[in-house]
Design a protein around this nucleic acid. Structure first.
Lengths: 114, 114
DNA sequence: TTGATGTTTGCATATCGCTGCAAATATATG
DNA sequence: CATATATTTGCAGCGATATGCAAACATCAA
């Protein structure tokens, strides 16, 4: 039966690598999704206090969310004087998503019946 | 200054829609990621008990994870006799990811300085 | 230095989510 | 019907996470 070899195993491994648990964990909170969506509309970095305006929670909580998103590689932070501004790392996110999509399609191809 | 109009607002809205909180919530558990990666390597639906073999947790927990993934649109389920088999909805996942990528790029374009 | 502003962090609390076990349900078989 | 197998669901325990408040920290301005 034309042995399936261990290609599925390789495929699964590369998918697991592409799935980036940290990314999904960072985006499983609705406030963090809102923050990302908001920052996606800004061409310049936004200050913590400005971002907090949009959310319905305390700025300390927003600061924590921003930290999580930054550690997941989704945001970059810059300090300017007293303020810290965060910006979406759009290309990085796009690259990650495209990598995941490619890995999925690869699996699809290797497991499709013919 | 060639007013930005409310395009950013539209952009943010479409991104929020594309982000699918349910998807990220479904994929923020490591066991669920493993399940998805495993099912991605199968061309046929897999039975709950077989899927549970791979995970290190009780099959009841696996059943719950499968339910969450199914409700997020990531899996489809089919009952055959006493067994229920789950399969990855690969195309749907790919479409969702590509939609999200496209929405992100759209935002990138609209907010880039020129 | 003193005071003001912006952000982060420590702490307590409340809620959420994962898990295992046992019971319930669904289906097949004797 | 009674029994066996496969899956789902109810329940309780428990660790993780989100949140607000207050304190600490960083930076700027008098």
């Amino acid at each position: 039966m034309s042995a399936p070899s261990n290609l599925p195993g390789i495929c699964q491994t590369s998918l697991m690598k592409a799935m980036r648990p940290k990314l999904f964990k960072a985006l499983c909170d609705p406030n963090r999704i809102a923050i990302v969506a908001t920052l996606a509309t800004k061409s310049d970095p936004s200050r913590v206090s400005d971002i907090a305006q949009g959310c319905g929670i305390d700025f300390s909580g927003v600061s924590r969310h921003l930290k999580i998103l930054r550690e997941a590689g989704l945001l970059s932070a810059v300090r300017k004087g007293r303020t810290v501004s965060y910006q979406l790392e759009s290309e990085h996110l796009v690259d990650t998503l495209e990598g995941l999509t490619a890995a999925l399609k690869q699996c699809q191809r290797q497991t499709s019946k013919y």
